[in-house]
Amino acid sequence: MAESFGRCCGSGYDSGGHLTKTRGASYTCDAGGRTDTLAADATTNRYVCDTDDNLTRTTLPSTPVEDRAYDPVVG
């Protein structure tokens, strides 16, 4: 499915099946397969996730860095 979608819509995927490009944008992934950069329109957004896949930092070109913290799940 992803392969045929990529051919018709200009999307690309790496060997792990992670999205790497769409029309007008490109993406990179960290070692865990999470998006860590999105580049489009001459700007780059950066994302950092923790080992639990929580988004912990966002860096956008026109705004300050946003840091996030999560309370541990007690159970």
Rank of each mutant, 00 (worst) to 15 (best):
residue 1 M to Y: 15
residue 1 M to I: 11
residue 2 A to G: 15
residue 4 S to R: 15
residue 5 F to P: 02
residue 5 F to Q: 07
residue 7 R to C: 00
residue 7 R to S: 03
residue 7 R to Q: 12
residue 8 C to H: 12
residue 8 C to G: 09
residue 10 G to P: 01
residue 10 G to C: 01
residue 12 G to C: 05
residue 15 S to G: 11
residue 15 S to W: 06
residue 16 G to D: 09
residue 17 G to M: 00
residue 18 H to Q: 07
residue 18 H to M: 04
residue 19 L to P: 00
residue 19 L to A: 01
residue 19 L to Q: 02
residue 21 K to H: 13
residue 21 K to I: 06
residue 21 K to R: 10
residue 21 K to W: 06
residue 22 T to D: 09
residue 23 R to L: 12
residue 25 A to K: 08
residue 26 S to E: 10
residue 26 S to I: 02
residue 26 S to F: 04
residue 27 Y to P: 01
residue 27 Y to Q: 00
residue 27 Y to R: 00
residue 27 Y to M: 03
residue 27 Y to A: 01
residue 27 Y to V: 01
residue 31 A to D: 06
residue 32 G to W: 09
residue 35 T to G: 00
residue 35 T to D: 01
residue 35 T to C: 01
residue 36 D to E: 14
residue 36 D to Y: 06
residue 37 T to A: 00
residue 38 L to D: 08
residue 40 A to Y: 11
residue 40 A to T: 12
residue 44 T to W: 05
residue 44 T to E: 07
residue 46 R to Q: 14
residue 49 C to A: 09
residue 50 D to E: 01
residue 50 D to R: 00
residue 51 T to S: 12
residue 53 D to V: 11
residue 53 D to L: 07
residue 54 N to I: 01
residue 54 N to L: 04
residue 56 T to R: 06
residue 56 T to M: 06
residue 57 R to A: 08
residue 58 T to P: 03
residue 58 T to L: 05
residue 59 T to R: 12
residue 62 S to H: 13
residue 63 T to A: 14
residue 64 P to T: 07
residue 66 E to M: 12
residue 67 D to W: 02
residue 70 Y to E: 02
residue 70 Y to V: 03
residue 71 D to Q: 15
residue 72 P to V: 14
residue 73 V to E: 14
residue 74 V to C: 13
residue 75 G to Q: 12
